[in-house]
Design a protein around this nucleic acid. Structure first.
Lengths: 419, 419
DNA sequence: AGACTATTTACAAGGGTTAGACGAAGCCTT
DNA sequence: AAGGCTTCGTCTAACCCTTGTAAATAGTCT
């Protein structure tokens, strides 16, 4: 059984406090934070003092006051340092440099060799990308607070090992160790589903929600689950493998070897297949590339093309059925749909899906079924990876010591004066 | 956001400590508890002292010692009081009286009126059952520490309200309030899935596991999820509604109105349907009652009857597929299958199911896929209901105050002697 | 009886939260 | 310009929880 200590509470409260600051569109006051987190004002003041001390937060002006001392406004100190977020995908990597407010400063995309990709190739590409990001922005590596790396597949997080990667058939590749030889910064490894979920929790629809499910629709599909404000990882950090859940027993063959997987219906290739099933010689299939088909469907449906419209309807039916199951099983406060496919097919798909979900999720009352599109801009995976680095930094015991004697003494407290 | 305090830690540790004592087949020492929970010995000694004080635990002899002070053995004080567990099902209720070691002292079953069942009927039946249990055992009601009531459907736990009950079309019935008028004991309301899961966590396969999924196969089917040693409830306490997840899009009609639900395949009626599909005039169907069909299948398969064997195989295929999805999505340490159907079909079903799950849960390594039958004897629902009452009692601030001044003073500690 | 050993108990220290007193910083009135 | 009023932020003492460690305890062994 995992042990829980008082410091976990503190850590959690620090997270909540900071999440509040990130979540707000404008600088917030200590009072706002206390109200939002449910913590006492004293505690918030404590935590904020600590965050100001290490310069993660800064004071940013004051609120208007109608008599009485004006509230100080707090904001993230974007200048405090930078974070790296790296999204390793099948065909290439995207590396992004963020300031501490998690604004993208610069990004690069680098292809991976087309043939069999070895761990060394990925390491080399990442290192190149990182060097380029730092060089082009003139950032000394001392300012990097941490780097998050997302690799597909099963990841053993603490050890920084890619346990299994489907594309490249990796087994137990100690990726963090390999990268640590080349990069001098704290490294955090996880997979894209977890990264997207964390991004959504800090900066997206999960900001003011404690239980949510994030579903990502791209070439593959998957889910991330957050319970009680924390990412749910399961026993071996592989919770959320939802893409190969069975939607149709004995249905479409899936690339995983099974039949009827969710992914065979609501991924990029799944949608393309739906088009082919509906109308094998539809002009939508002119370009055989599956992404192109999806783009074509998106364009055509807005002009009322019947095949495109029916494709959307069917996809919504598949997706809605699968999502209703998630609602019933996990009962989240809200369910977020993101990923390239969801972006492309956008509101029309979601609108239909919402109807299906509402119908199928009975006996859940309809208002309990909140379904929304991801509000995270740009690439949620690299943002999420950077967020892992942020979380890691916030847990750094060097910076955020247990109520440091130094600081407290400086303020004259904590030193027992009596016998 | 829900607030976390230091007392939560204490409460949690108290639970863990006691769970240890319950879990062990024989009385355990403080050292055993410390080892099992990962707590320091001092803390365990603290908690045990408190539990001894309120007489929930008693010392039960000493271990053999090869030189040195022998370890004291601790056991639950069964005499400390009694708990009630009430399982309200479609056709009748089962009420059980437990001592504090959660041994059944007596049970009664009472039918509910066959026609439309009103809340007052259920209340009346429960009250009758409880009176009978107490009268027949000569238990004064002052010895009852609490009563747990399981009702099917959606339950709003804090309020003690049955939000929706499918059998009787109840909506927002304030069951706890109604019962409180008639019974003078703390009441805890929840549904059968949650109850079974909690029973499994305290007394079954979840004793030494922090993340588990409990699947119940009866007339209906459902799941319960425990995360991090605590029951996962979701946003509105309705997590675990798994029975109407889609297994076959457009498949068998389900009584819920949807098609292809898990429940239409692996419930009692689902199995009977499988038999009918396989061989419409099989002798297994002689008795048209669905439970009787399942019993017949269980008997016949052990004699190698081909229809029965094929029924088992198919059911295992359905069940295995559905369970593999749960493994992939939730990644529990272990998955427990219980319920009348699982009891009847027993090991043959599980053996086949295990194979299917192992095949379909890739890329999970096979050893990560632990699938076992429920080890809770008798009725897990009423046991779980009683466990809710136990948990409630353990959270009672009267009994387990925050480090009570009284007790501590008696022992001479905690009173600052200096200025 | 005395030595030895392992278990309990007691206690102080350390980490956390929080109410409440008090100084600080603005508005407003006189 | 001074003083009242009001609200915010800091500080401190009090309380809750865990835990390392010294002292007391209760057995076995010689």
């Amino acid at each position: 059984m995992v042990k829980r200590t008082a410091q976990d509470i503190r850590r959690r409260n620090r997270f909540d406090t900071l999440r509040c600051v990130y979540a707000a569109p404008a600088p917030v006051s200590r009072q706002d934070i206390a109200a939002a987190t449910g913590l006492s004002f004293a505690t918030v003041a404590n935590l904020v003092a600590e965050l100001l001390e290490v310069e993660v937060l800064v004071e940013a002006g004051h609120e208007e006051s109608g008599g009485g001392r004006p509230r100080a406004r707090l904001a993230v100190n974007a200048e405090r340092g930078v974070l790296l977020g790296i999204d390793v995908a099948e065909t290439g990597i995207q590396a992004q440099l963020f300031d501490l407010s998690l604004t993208v400063l610069r990004s690069v995309e680098l292809p991976l060799p087309g043939a069999k990709v070895a761990p060394a190739d990925v390491v080399e590409t990442i290192v190149t990308g990182v060097r380029e990001l730092l060089a082009s922005t003139g950032t000394p590596s001392s300012r990097v607070l941490g780097a998050g790396v997302s690799v597909p597949g099963l990841v053993e997080r603490e050890g920084g090992v890619s346990v299994y990667s489907p594309y490249w058939s990796w087994r137990d590749v100690p990726l963090r160790a390999l990268l640590a030889e080349r990069l001098d910064t704290p490294l955090y490894l996880d997979n894209p589903l977890k990264a997207s979920t964390v991004a959504e929790m800090w900066f997206g629809a999960g900001r003011d929600v404690d239980d949510l499910v994030v579903v990502t629709l791209r070439a593959g599909v998957g889910a991330g689950v957050a319970v009680d404000g924390a990412l749910y990882r399961g026993a071996t950090n592989s919770a959320g493998e939802w893409g190969h859940s069975c939607l149709v027993l004995g249905g479409r063959e899936c690339r995983c070897g099974k039949e009827g997987c969710v992914e065979a219906y609501v991924s990029t290739s799944g949608v393309a297949r739906t088009v082919r099933e509906l109308s094998p010689d539809s002009p939508l299939l002119r370009d055989p590339d599956e992404s192109a088909v999806v783009e074509a469907v998106a364009r055509a449906q807005s002009q009322g093309d019947p095949v495109a419209v029916e494709t959307i309807t069917r996809t919504a039916h598949y997706l809605g059925t699968a999502l209703a199951d998630l609602f019933n099983l996990l009962n989240p406060q809200t369910l977020v749909v993101g990923g390239w496919l969801a972006d492309r097919l956008g509101e029309p798909l979601l609108r239909h899906t919402r109807e299906v979900v509402a119908r199928q999720a009975a006996p859940q009352p309809p208002e309990a079924v909140r379904l929304q599109r991801s509000t995270v801009p740009d690439n949620p995976v690299s943002l999420g990876a950077a967020t892992f680095a942020l979380e890691g930094f916030l847990n750094d015991r060097e910076t955020f010591g247990p109520v440091k004697a130094g600081r407290r003494n400086a303020r004259g407290a904590r030193t027992r004066t009596a016998p």
